[in-house]
Design a protein around this nucleic acid. Sequence first.
DNA 1: TTCCAGGCAATAC
DNA 2: GTATTGCATGGA
Length: 203
Amino acid sequence: MVKQMYNRLLKKYGPQGWWPLQEHKGVNMTKTGSSKGYHPGDFDFPKNERQRFEICVGAILTQNTNWANVEKALTGLGKVSCSKIIKMDIDELKKRIRPAGYYNQKARKLKEFAEFYNRLKRKPTREELLSIWGIGPETADSMLLYAWKEPRFVVDAYTKRIFGMEGKDYDDVQKHFEKKLPKDHKVYQEYHALIVEHAKRIK
DNA sequence: TTCCAGGCAATAC
DNA sequence: GTATTGCATGGA
């Protein structure tokens, strides 16, 4: 059922090209709430540390928030880097990410994550990410999957809704999918993006 | 005007 | 240990 649904969604919507990046010169897909930055069929991302950090920032900003609003915040941040977030005045940071909502909390989350990232010398473990204030299971898994290509199935509200698993524990749902899928970050990346796309359309 | 979006931490029970 | 609440903007 899990694999079947994947094939069905992929055939229906095509490759989604997640995670969207700010200044990627390539495909210009027209999608809801966004125009470019997607790279369908190309899983060779991030291309550099800057992109890796940007994915992490986006993962925090998109918590319970429409991606169109996140893009406005990302634009406000400009070429975002770890040191830039660390150095930036907290009120300035709040001002810039304001369109993404929850800006008081998210400014603190970005600050705390930037400090962590700054000391990072290798791929973080899931436990390390979860120990950071503001990083929960979905955000941690999104980072591991899209910024570090670790095959980890990302569970969100859509996933539970579509598969009738509302109320079930995050880790249980994740296991349910990971048991039935090949341990391939390309599949995991595509599947999560397809679920989000599908959920938006059937709304 | 109301509803909700690619959650999470704090608090209440 | 589980359920509820606060956080916030912008578009439908």
